[in-house]
Amino acid sequence: MSAVGVLALQGGVAEHISILEQLGCDVKEIRTPDELESISALILPGGESTTLISLLNRWELTSPLRSMGEDGFPIFGTCAGAVLLSKEIDEKEHEVSQNSLGLADVKAVRNYFGRQTCSFLKSIKVTGLAEPFPGVFIRAPLLLPLSDTVEVLSSVEDGPVFLRQDNLWLSSFHPELTTDCRIHRLFLESQGILKGSG
């Protein structure tokens, strides 16, 4: 099995690595286009989306990642990572989204729930998981589907927070900030990277 990549320019990188290692994956940190060779899937961690967009461009990762995503390569973005995957960001920020990856038919509304004092924990129901998942929402975006091919895997009362469009997975919460591996397992199993545990 080839390694699962984690974009390691900024943000909650170590947390994703720890969960992937618990699942028995080999993990590779990605900072340059060369490092994208020989990985089977990629995680875009949470962090600051404006910082990540600027660093992806600076280190020439934007276009190789766009091509990979368009060719069906599995990519999972959490929080800021989900913002990077979204075709539209907020209302008027076309410039931002043009420089971003913009792969999934999703509109991300950044900081939808408010500033840090409004960050929250909430137990959420997720399609494909028998038991609820502990959702950690930190200055989280709301993720609005823009096409019928986007599947909503979880919602809170304000709207969708976990989406899937074929090879692209987007969560507005942080599964990496828990010790619960089920969301990562779900993603990797659906892409044929981890074998189902039955």
Partner: peptide, 23 residues
């Protein structure tokens, strides 16, 4: 439904700093 949200928790406070790492 709203009151099932836990705001200002330790995980959320510590978690924001975790998202600032490498920055």
């Amino acid at each position: 439904m709203k009151n099932s949200r836990k705001e200002g928790s330790w995980e959320a406070k510590k978690g924001l700093a975790q998202m600032l790492k490498g920055g």
